[in-house]
Simulated scan of single mutants.
Amino acid sequence: MKKDSKIYVAGHKGLVGSAIVRNLRSKGYLNVIGKSHQELDLINQGEVRNFFEEERPEYVILAAAKVGGIHANNSYPADFIYDNLMIQSNIIKAAHDFKVKKLLFLGSTCIYPKMAPQPIKEEYLLSGYLEETNEAYAVAKIAGLEMCKFFKRQYGDNFISCMPTNLYGPNDNFDLNNSHVLPALIRKFHEAKVNNEHNVEVWGSGKPLREFLHVDDMADACVYLMKNYNGEEHVNIGTGEEVSIFELAKLVKKVVEFNGEIVFDSSKPDGTPRKLTDITKLHSLGWKHKIDLETGVRQTYEWFVENKNIFI
């Protein structure tokens, strides 16, 4: 990619897309474009094709998706599978038809088999049953990964894919009803501190292990892959490091400076005991994460405090 190449980031306002835009611009890429949902409905094939015909992007990063927590995935599986299939199918086909030089599709490690061996290698995809609560989203995302592979195989399109682990950072979702564990903990501890509460309740036993990657590191890895990787197989993006929910809660408590107690509610579900990516391939390509967890949590908490009116 040249500094003046036209780069389309689909989903440029979300957690992932906004980080990719920030990274590209920080590296001097001057011609980065994006369209809001109001300007371009990615589920509408005609609108997507008209956009590609008019704008003629040279590079595409496909970070747009319908996403949500367990409750949303369980409640609206038809919407999750349809919307995601349409978004990615429309963009991937248009990228082929309008001769995009390179496309990066983003999956998610939650689409690996529920009982995949740990740490999770790229080749474990499609090797077992999916997590039931996430099945509709996972089937759609797997189809996107496979589409990129088959367009490359049949037509020679330079379409690549990556599989980021659990992400957090600026523009995350801090809604307590459907956010992921880290932003939920940040908000819970902050509100407990502000309200002078004596304790914070955390779901589960605190024993499950999770891997967390700052979204700015993820964005840097995506841009690195756009410049340095052309393979058919997707690439895991993660830290290769894990932390228990107990240790994570202690870290958030420390960062927020909450003085009360942490209470674990073992009657609530723990979820998968462990979910760690094998990042041997990513390291062999020459990229490694830079932001350690405590630094990242501090940055994210600062962003939340500055922007909390959006969520509260």
Results as ranks from 00 to 15, higher is better:
E232V: 10
K66R: 15
N134P: 00
E123C: 11
Y76S: 11
N166A: 07
Y82S: 15
N74P: 04
H289N: 14
D4N: 15
D157S: 12
N50S: 14
R25H: 09
Q88M: 13
P57M: 06
C148Q: 01
E232Q: 05
I111W: 01
G28R: 05
P273F: 00
G128H: 07
N84W: 00
P119D: 08
K114L: 13
L293D: 00
A249N: 05
K35T: 06
N44K: 09
H12R: 11
D157I: 02
K308E: 12
K308G: 04
A94I: 07
D83G: 11
E146V: 13
A94H: 06
D278M: 02
H12A: 15
N44T: 08
N173R: 06
N73P: 05
L62N: 13
K268H: 04
R56A: 11
N236V: 00
I20S: 08
A219E: 09
E242D: 12
E201K: 14
S127F: 00
E53V: 02
H37T: 15
A249W: 03
A78K: 10
T165M: 00
V243M: 10
D97E: 15
L125H: 01
V60C: 07
L104Q: 06
V252E: 07
I291G: 03
I237N: 04
A63L: 06
F189P: 09
D216S: 12
H96G: 12
L85A: 07
K121N: 06
